[in-house]
Amino acid sequence: MQSWVQLQFVTNSADRGHRGFRIQYRIVSEAAIKEPLSIVGESMFTGCGGHSKLGQLSGEILSPGYPTTYPKNSTCNWLIRVEAQQRIYIRIVHLHLAPTIAECERASLTIIDGYKHESSDNTRKDTSETSQAKFCGSQLYYSEEGMKSYLSSANRIVVRLATQDGPAFSMIGEERIGFKIIWTAVEGLIGESVNPERSERAEEASCEGQFLCHGGQVCVEQVHGICASRSRLCIHNSLVCDGIYNCVEGDFSDEQHCYSKEIITSAACGFSLIVLMMLVLVCCDQLRKRRRLRILIKERRALENGKNGSRTFAPYSWFQPKQ
């Protein structure tokens, strides 16, 4: 289930009692390999399993029944697949499956990196190079930064929830039960290159046109200088200011200046509105002054016409000759 396969046949002696082997193979596209089958133990639950859409860059996965409960005797598989040159960053926002970390049999969350198909035949062993991370109990057991996240080695991940029983009685009434995951398609990871000839500046140049997370440092004991650098993810520009933290745990640079942008936009709109209102008031005042000026001119002309008429057209009795 990879892009290439090498078969090696080794013998140490000839034995005519065995016929040898015959293998059949088939080349399929990656899109044809679906997620493993999901099984829900309780029919009233929905949202058990699924897969990402073509071209999707980020998404959210919730356990069935979140945030109040989850089903028992269930196996839910979610397939996340991105472009071939991309990788997948998983961040667990919330995790509460059992009261203690020792209760993995009750419920567990597993992130499977690569291709893995399980068989009912227990004699068959999976020898593929597949790495995985398993989470049990509550997020309180993963308090250190970076413990609730995972970066894939390739472009395919399966998120699996396996339960044998429902939430414990002591968990009833909890604010949130189950899990919530945010995943992000990563264009690259700065500072990961094992080639010493390739500088970090050259790696940053490879992220040109995309958004480069700031990363920063996380210090366990700042007094003694025990610090480590956060990973710097290169993500798509469309994920910036989308309301979701897509950088690594503790790095909020992709959503850091979004509020200030909103303030600038609001201030610009407010200033434009004030200027527009002032222009309207000035125009109204000019119109009012012009109207008053026209009225005054009419009144003056009417007054002048009245005076001229009284001088020219006197009463007729004034001009009668005396007899």
Score class of each variant (00 low, 15 high):
residue 199 S to P: 08
residue 242 D to A: 05
residue 2 Q to K: 01
residue 219 C to T: 07
residue 254 D to L: 02
residue 2 Q to R: 04
residue 44 M to C: 12
residue 93 V to T: 15
residue 207 C to I: 05
residue 151 L to I: 02
residue 215 G to V: 03
residue 281 L to F: 15
residue 102 A to C: 11
residue 288 R to F: 07
residue 55 G to L: 11
residue 287 L to I: 07
residue 311 R to L: 14
residue 276 L to H: 07
residue 180 K to A: 10
residue 170 S to W: 03
residue 226 I to K: 07
residue 238 S to A: 07
residue 86 Q to P: 10
residue 82 V to E: 02
residue 35 E to V: 00
residue 99 P to C: 00
residue 320 Q to T: 00
residue 300 R to Y: 15
residue 173 G to K: 04
residue 227 C to G: 03
residue 219 C to E: 08
residue 14 A to K: 06
residue 18 H to V: 09
residue 207 C to R: 03
residue 133 A to K: 13
residue 27 I to V: 12
residue 80 I to E: 03
residue 221 E to G: 05
residue 245 Y to K: 11
residue 184 T to Q: 04
residue 305 N to C: 12
residue 260 S to I: 11
residue 130 T to V: 14
residue 203 E to W: 09
residue 155 N to L: 07
residue 239 L to K: 04
residue 50 G to S: 05
residue 195 N to A: 02
residue 111 I to N: 03
residue 184 T to S: 00
residue 283 C to N: 13
residue 28 V to R: 06
residue 320 Q to V: 08
residue 186 V to E: 02
residue 282 V to P: 04
residue 150 Y to S: 00
residue 269 C to A: 15
residue 79 L to Y: 05
residue 305 N to Q: 15
residue 245 Y to R: 08
residue 83 E to M: 03
residue 204 E to R: 08
residue 24 Q to I: 04
residue 133 A to M: 13
residue 243 G to R: 10
residue 214 H to M: 01
residue 313 F to C: 14
residue 30 E to S: 09
residue 262 E to V: 05
residue 295 I to R: 14
residue 296 L to H: 15
residue 43 S to M: 09
residue 46 T to F: 10
residue 81 R to H: 12
residue 292 R to S: 14
residue 269 C to L: 13
residue 47 G to F: 07
residue 234 C to V: 02
residue 92 I to G: 00
residue 245 Y to L: 12
residue 196 P to F: 02
residue 32 A to F: 05
residue 2 Q to S: 11
residue 39 I to F: 11
residue 50 G to F: 08
residue 73 N to D: 15
residue 251 D to H: 01
residue 48 C to W: 10
residue 168 A to K: 04
residue 310 S to C: 14
residue 52 S to L: 09
residue 314 A to G: 13
residue 101 I to F: 04
residue 175 E to I: 00
residue 153 S to T: 10
residue 126 D to A: 00
residue 284 C to M: 09
residue 128 S to N: 08
residue 133 A to E: 14
residue 80 I to M: 00
residue 156 R to K: 01
residue 85 Q to F: 14
residue 38 S to I: 00
residue 48 C to Q: 08
residue 207 C to V: 03
residue 212 L to K: 01
residue 97 L to W: 01
residue 218 V to I: 09
residue 64 P to S: 05
residue 270 G to W: 10
